[in-house]
């Protein structure tokens, strides 16, 4: 990635990068304050500000500060079922079997409403349970940032 130009300020003649992992603690300097080095605060300039000179650095940073998506859950993939099924007319575009005289086309699509409701409720339960369990790690990560 690009770390040149304004992205990596040079301090006092020596080509010292002020952004980087130093002594295990993530520190950052400012152009205006020269060599003044501050611990990272919660608002972080992104993109070309030089925090992520390489992909590897970014990973370290994420691990250190708990920056990855914290609400990630594999259960969310289950939500694809009630999204994809109603979008496939091949499944329900027929008259038989009828229910109470209603063609399959209509009662099947109304039935998808129950499916969606059930799947969402299930995923919600699983995600909140996982969050409660993993809440401790998230909290520690949050503390380190804040």
């Amino acid at each position: 990635m690009r770390a040149e130009g304004s992205a990596a300020p040079v301090v006092g003649g020596a080509a010292a990068r002020v952004s980087g992992l130093r002594g295990g603690e993530w520190v950052r300097g400012t152009a205006a304050t020269g060599a003044r080095v501050l611990p990272v605060e919660r608002t972080i300039a992104r993109h070309r500000s030089g925090e992520w000179p390489t992909v590897r650095d970014r990973r370290e940073r994420r691990a250190a500060f708990g920056e990855g998506r914290q609400d990630k859950s594999r259960w969310h993939w289950l939500l694809l079922v009630p999204i994809v099924l109603p979008l496939m007319p091949v499944i329900y575009n027929r008259v038989d079997p009828t229910l109470l005289g209603m063609p399959f086309f209509y009662w099947c699509q109304l039935g998808f409403a129950f499916l969606a409701s059930g799947v969402i409720a299930f995923v919600h339960k699983k995600v909140t349970a996982a969050r409660k369990q993993g809440g401790k790690t998230v909290a520690t990560a949050g503390e380190r940032v804040g």
Partner: peptide
């Protein structure tokens, strides 16, 4: 009907 079914799983995320 399909529109108002698929929208909720999408919104959930």
């Amino acid at each position: 009907v399909p529109f108002l079914v698929i929208v909720y799983p999408m919104l959930f995320v």
